[in-house]
Design a protein around this nucleic acid. Structure first.
Length: 950
DNA sequence: GCAGCCACGTA
DNA sequence: CGTACGTGGCTGCC
């Protein structure tokens, strides 16, 4: 009677979800003015919407328990005693949830004499038989017995959002028994949540051991006498209870529900009913639109991003299955197998010599960037690895090499012989491989002592180069975005496919590995031609890939910190912050939370009656440092307010430092007392790097107290100093070069105090007559240029009248006319071409330049003005890093780069290498590119990062 | 439980 | 009403 289908059925355990919502959300914050609790209703709606958005089911049914007992209570009187004791505040919400479901057009089912679990089991069984892929959303582990190849249980983790997809494999991995055996295991262990005692002293582990030994619970009962020890005794004493448990936890799969799966549609909301209900519950417009967005299009329309045209879900899914050709797996365990596999598939790999042999020795001025990737990307090896790729603690679970048709998957750990073969393969074939995330791959390979020289193509980098504004944080997301394919099979939570936790429950691991390999190849085939067409292959192969390698080294090495000093700084800051807090409290007269802008607003603008400051985006009054400082100055004759503001400002500053130090403490590896940050290479839209976990690119540097923190970064064992080199005014130098402005070029070539020199040109005065104010005003103007600074902004920053700022700007552009023209041409070109370009061809697209919304358009104009300048500076620094590392390697020194802060490199200096390494790095930075102006690099060396300042 | 705001650190 | 980032704390959600 049924046709095979690719459709998905979602069955929801209504009680389980309501419980979850009720206990997750504070009831105090969710109740109507008349006192009706609404937290479970609201939570139910949002959580269900979340799951629907993620899973996009075609059919949906919700099951509820019915009041009054079931056959189970007759067998086990205390059954679900704990559940019946649900708080009144939750019970009153169940009818509301059901009303909501009706209004949302969602079918819910309850059947007297049965539990929701039985309804779920029945629906899942019906769905299974009819060929649906069935998802069961339930926090009740009894549902695990339903799992099979077509039934997956979505089981909430600690955070609701990370739903575990329980497949047969993940049940086996976690419990060491099959889904069918799970009820046996649960009977032995018991279920405290349902008030069901098991065998005392027996948990999942022993239960699984016995089940595997004797096959089933029946087997265990037969052989109960053979089980020795305390646990055997305990089992025999409770065997009747266990048998009873087993009867009770078996779900009924053939309840007569009187519905067909096909009837369980959704997607049409009775909006009037929802509005009435939400009004009653006092839910706001945000909730309304959130819910309508999901439920009012529901099963019929794919709500993935795209051209905005709705597509049929089913069609999407079928297409995707055709698009992705999975390679055939070969599992490699013995060394010979690997070599044999390589031999058997070598003929499939066709990469022309001129592509494979690509190297770059001179970066020049960016005029010769015409390497092609060709269609070779489709005929290369794919290399991938899976595991925890966090620097400093990487562990790998498997590595693989694949062609289009076949995949050799090597589970880890491996024998030395196999490793040697793999290493030999990588050494000879690296330039004929494609990868996704070379840097992350290096961390994983490094975890098993493998290394790999540059691949020919990286799909992660390629995706970034083609669309730097889009950021996929998993391979799956990249596939959805670039390939427009969506997955019918279940996924593990959206962790990122190449990055899952050790303890996470997994589907059959090779299944997603094959899929990953197929995605990488598919991405390469899609992105390769785009990269070629834009002439960005050189950018990837000469800059991004080599810089990935440098970054891997920096992340792996990490930065040594003085933990003792960190802790004492933390304590010092904590004490000072506490003092400032107490002083603030005394002035305020109440012990408010100084970290709460809301409470501060009340004290400042209501209690103290201070003149309101600028408004924030959301309309409240800002309490930021600039505003507080302003109030502080203006409140000299109001002792209370003045005292409070002073203490508050002090608390802000110290507390921030304390927090930064604490973050560093938390991020320090205990094993090596080093901090291993991750440099994100595909996040910043301009081409810059960013640093996360922790961010080491925003360690304080502007005032003395903050700068102290830099002092905790020290050379590690075997090293004697830190060296820091930074570019002076790179962005301005780039503007001088690209604009061809003779005056600005001359200013840089003169080698004088740059800002003073520029000021003398602007004000037409001799250099020695330039005042401090004139210099700083011109300096601010210079720096503001690259950001698209307005006269208003300039006036505000310099605390001068807008008219004066206007005059300054005019004078400045009179002097540097070509800079003005250049900046205008940047925006004009971007408007015409749709994108900006750096010296080395890195693009960024700006669709908003044509926006009719003035605010959006002008923001895009400023960003378009800035992108090529900031981006070219980023390109130059990347080249400098590659050159610096290369020159250090060639000199056979031990010193190594450990940090990059946009225009600064920090190098850990080995004994006796200070002078030599300083010159090597300086040279690498100064000659990264040839510009019309010199690149000025200043270096310093010291026993910590602070002292390395110059 | 989570998204969004606010504030603030860097270049 | 200056670009580019990341992080931590508080808050609303109702």
């Amino acid at each position: 009677m049924t046709v095979p289908t690719n459709e998905t059925l979602l069955v929801v355990d209504g009680h389980s979800l309501a419980f979850r919502a009720f206990f997750a959300l504070p009831v105090d914050n969710f109740s109507t003015s008349s006192g009706q609790a609404t937290n479970a209703v609201w939570g139910f709606a949002t959580m269900l919407a979340q799951v629907i958005d993620a899973e996009k089911p075609d059919h949906l049914g919700v099951a509820f328990d019915v009041k009054g007992g079931t056959f189970r209570n007759e067998m086990l009187p205390q059954y679900k005693g704990t559940r019946e004791a649900a708080p009144e505040e939750l019970l009153t919400q169940l009818p509301l949830i059901q009303r909501m479901l009706t209004a949302l057009g969602v079918t819910y089912i309850e059947k007297s004499g049965f539990e929701g679990d039985d309804v779920i089991a029945t629906l899942a069984t019906m769905g299974d038989k009819a060929g649906y892929h069935t998802l069961v959303l339930s926090g009740d582990r009894d549902a695990f017995q339903l799992v099979d190849d077509n039934v997956t249980v979505l089981y909430p983790g600690h955070h609701f959002k990370d739903l575990k997809h329980m497949t047969p494999q993940s049940i086996v991995d976690k419990y060491k028994v099959t889904p069918a055996q799970y009820p046996d295991l649960a009977a032995l262990r018991g279920e405290t949540a349902d008030n069901i005692p098991g065998v005392p002293g027996v948990g999942d582990g022993f239960a699984a051991k016995w089940i595997n030994q004797f096959g089933s619970l029946d087997g265990i009962c037969e052989h109960a006498d053979e089980i020795g020890g305390k646990k055997g005794e305990s089992l025999r004493a409770n065997i009747d209870q266990v048998k009873l448990n087993r009867k009770v936890n078996a779900l009924v799969r053939d309840v007569d529900l009187g519905v067909d799966i096909e009837d369980l549609t959704f997607g049409t909301v009775d909006v009037a009913q929802i509005d009435a209900l939400f009004k009653e519950l006092e839910f706001g417009p945000r909730t309304r639109s959130r819910v309508l967005k999901t439920f009012n299009t529901g099963a019929k329309v794919s709500n993935t991003s795209g051209a905005g045209e709705s597509t049929n879900n089913e069609q999407d899914k079928q297409d995707s299955n055709l698009d992705l050709n999975l390679p055939e797996p070969t599992s490699i365990t013995a060394p010979e197998q690997f070599d044999e596999w390589v031999k058997a598939h070598r003929a499939e790999v066709k990469v022309p010599g001129e592509i494979a042999d690509f190297t770059v020795s001179d970066y020049g001025d960016g005029s010769q960037r015409h390497t092609v990737c060709g269609d070779a990307v489709g005929h290369a090896w794919t290399v991938a690895a899976w595991g925890d790729e966090r620097p400093g603690r990487a562990t790998a679970q498997a590595v693989a090499v694949a062609t289009a048709t076949s995949a050799a998957i090597v589970p880890l750990p491996i024998t030395d012989t196999l490793r040697a073969q793999f290493a030999r393969f990588l050494k000879s074939e690296h330039s004929r491989t494609i990868v996704h995330g070379y840097k992350e791959l290096l961390h994983l390979l490094g975890a098993v002592d493998l290394d790999m020289d540059l691949p020919m193509f990286d799909t992660k980098l390629a995706g970034y180069l083609t669309q730097p504004d889009f950021h996929a944080d998993s391979l799956k997301q990249a596939a959805e975005h670039f390939l427009d394919i969506h997955f019918t099979e279940t996924e593990q939570p959206s962790q990122g496919t190449l990055d899952f936790d050790d303890d996470q429950v997994e589907e059959d691991p090779n299944e997603h590995r094959l899929r990953d390999l197929a995605i990488i190849r598919s991405l390469a085939v899609t992105l390769g031609p785009i990269i070629d067409e834009r002439e960005q292959c050189w950018l990837m192969r000469a800059i991004e890939l080599p810089v990935s390698r440098v970054l891997h080294g920096m992340e792996h090495t990490g930065a040594k910190v003085d933990s003792v000093r960190l802790v004492s700084m933390r304590d010092q800051f904590a004490a000072e912050a506490r003092q400032a807090q107490e002083m603030a409290w005394e002035y305020a007269g109440t012990e408010i939370n100084l970290q709460s802008p809301k409470q501060l607003q009340k004290v400042l603008f209501e209690d103290m009656g201070l003149k309101p400051t600028k408004r924030t985006k959301s309309g409240s009054y800002t309490t930021n440092a600039a505003a507080l400082q302003d109030l502080y100055v203006k409140s000299v004759d109001n002792e209370r307010a003045n005292g409070f503001l002073g203490a508050l400002l002090r608390h802000r500053e110290i507390n921030k430092l304390k927090q930064i130090v604490q973050t560093l403490i938390d991020a320090t590896n205990t094993s090596d007392e080093r901090i291993h940050t991750t440099f994100e290479q595909t996040v910043a839209a301009t081409g810059r790097l960013s640093s996360v976990d922790p961010n080491l690119q925003n360690i304080p540097n502007r005032n003395a107290a903050g700068r102290e923190i830099r002092g905790v970064f020290v050379p590690g064992e075997g090293y004697e100093a830190l060296m820091s080199c930074d570019y002076s005014q790179v962005e301005l130098r780039i503007m001088a070069d690209l604009s061809g402005d003779e005056a600005l070029i001359e200013a840089f070539r003169s080698g004088a105090d740059f800002h003073k020199y520029v000021a003398s040109m602007v004000y037409k005065l001799p250099v020695d007559q330039i005042t401090g104010d004139q210099r700083s005003h011109v300096k601010a103007m210079s720096y503001g240029l690259a950001y698209g600074l307005s006269t208003y902004g300039l006036a505000q920053q310099l605390k001068i009248a807008p008219r004066e700022a206007e005059a300054l700007k005019n004078r400045y552009f009179d002097t540097f006319g070509k800079v003005h023209d250049y900046l205008e041409s940047l925006v004009a070109n971007a408007r015409e071409k749709g994108y900006t370009e750096t010296i080395f061809g890195r693009r960024r697209y700006f669709p908003a330049l044509h926006s009719t919304n003035r605010v959006a358009r002008e923001a895009a104009e400023r960003a378009a003005l800035n992108a090529p300048i900031q981006g070219s500076a980023a390109d130059i620094m990347k080249i400098a890093m590659i050159r610096a590392e290369q020159t250090l390697a060639e000199a056979h020194v031990k010193s190594r780069i450990i940090l990059q802060i946009h225009d600064e490199l920090v190098v850990e200096i080995a004994p006796g290498e200070g002078d030599q390494v300083t010159e090597l790095v300086r040279n690498a930075m100064e000659h990264a590119v040839d510009l019309a102006v010199p690149l000025d690099v200043s270096c310093g060396i010291g026993s910590d990062w602070q002292l390395a300042a110059h």
